[in-house]
């Protein structure tokens, strides 16, 4: 192609805001009493970190030929914490601030899963994890992350964290269970 006579033909009628595709995250934390009732509940909105952006983009292109880029290290579960630093795209807000020992949990059986919300309404990817009574016992649980190193009973750095949420603090006694259901919604318009 010649570089000598380049013309950029500006389209004055480019589509407007309706051609974006939204990815947002939300979820709910439930503390389950020994009798199976919901003892406490907190709804949250999450933040997908810079690492999460890269993760989802890499997943989007993984294996597509001819370049066939590799998938990133896959996420494996969640971890809990007690630090309420606001969630952020990077730096300290993009990872757990204060890890709850023993709270590393892989995703529940059947998770993750994708669900259509209906024609034109997008899809939701659902992750869930469960902490049984006697595990991750702590007062003031207020942060949660999705990570790729859930097998490790230790805090995760930002490099391992695709998403973080801060919510109203909940107490989990030694007798309580805890269930987190977390959705990432993909919607183009």
């Amino acid at each position: 192609m010649s570089d000598s006579k380049i013309t950029v033909r500006v389209n004055e009628k480019l589509p407007g805001p309706k051609d974006s595709l939204r990815v947002t995250g939300h979820g709910v934390v439930r503390v389950i009493a020994p009798d199976g009732t919901v003892k406490a509940e907190s709804v949250f909105e999450n933040l997908i970190t810079d690492v999460g952006d890269a993760y989802y983009a890499a997943m989007a292109a993984a294996g597509v030929s001819p370049a066939a880029p590799s998938a990133p290290t896959l996420v494996t579960g969640m971890k809990l914490g007690t630090d309420n630093t606001a969630a952020a795209k990077n730096t300290s807000g993009s990872a757990l601030g204060a890890y709850v020992t023993g709270s590393n949990a892989t995703f529940d059986a059947g998770s993750p899963a994708v669900t259509s919300l209906g024609a034109g309404l997008g899809v939701e990817v659902g992750y869930s994890a469960t902490w049984a009574a006697g595990t991750a016992t702590a007062d003031g649980i207020c942060e949660i992350v999705i990570v790729d190193d859930a097998a490790t009973d230790a805090i995760s750095t930002s490099a391992h964290t695709i998403s973080r949420a801060v919510f109203t603090a909940l107490d989990k006694s030694i007798y309580d269970g805890l269930v987190i259901t977390w959705y990432h919604k993909f919607l183009g318009a």
Binding site: L21, A60, A71, L74, F107, S111, A113, G122, V125, F186
Partner: peptide, 18 residues
């Protein structure tokens, strides 16, 4: 809409245990 489903499916492809 098919693209939404595609990217949603790609986002979790291979993630355990499902």
């Amino acid at each position: 809409t098919v693209g939404d489903a595609y990217y949603g499916a790609m986002a979790i492809a291979g993630v355990s245990p499902a």
